[in-house]
Amino acid sequence: MLELKNLHVAIGGNEILKGIDLKINAGEVHAIMGPNGSGKSTLASVLAGREEYEVTSGEVLFQGENLLDLDAETRAREGLFLAFQYPVEIPGVGNTYFLRTALNAIREHRGQPPLDAIDFLQLVREKADIVKLDPALLKRAVNEGFSGGEKKRNEIFHMAVLEPRLAILDETDSGLDIDALRIVSEGVNSLRSPERSFIVITHYQRLLDHIIPDSVHVLKDGRIVESGGRELALELEARGYDWLDSDPALEAAR
């Protein structure tokens, strides 16, 4: 599904990602953990196609294609979805209208006819139910005046409607209370399938109690310093990130 080979990324001349290798197969859930400033969100942004990040070397294959050659909207249409850490408000643009424009752009790209208003509305109701999104939020402007939790839930709702092949959740758990965390996680779990992969970026192990990952990677100072199974997340929870600090043996092993 996705393969990163020695990916180096800089912004404004500062190197943030210093050689990332990562392979994600269809149907897998990979968690990326790490302290603040380790490059987690940079990784999410660069995969989604944010232009201010400069890829200085390395490559990224998405479904066999060179991802870095595609602009952001083409990546989205090819099935890459980013649930934003800070979802953006678009005043005056209705959430449903926005989503229908998005879905029909994606459908057009795939050679499918646009969904008409009635079918779309039905789809929206169905999906809103999955994340228990307040139907009133469908009629409001995109993210405008939404609470932090509502915004995150809305992201997962967008994901449910757009049905991506690869979804990247960038700290979707931040700012969620326990109930919201559970609902969002259930939403994500209901979308898990053998054809769909996830990258879950988080600070906290608690999200991974709900969304069980196949692999866990620790990102530190722009490098993946440790990879493992679910138990790695538990160890991090217990010991923090410091034990991974400048471990020469580990560096050498890589």
Partner: peptide, 17 residues
Amino acid sequence: GEDQIFYCNQRGISTED
């Protein structure tokens, strides 16, 4: 903002739209 445009792009919507 570039942020708003990027958000739309990320959902598959062209910059013009």
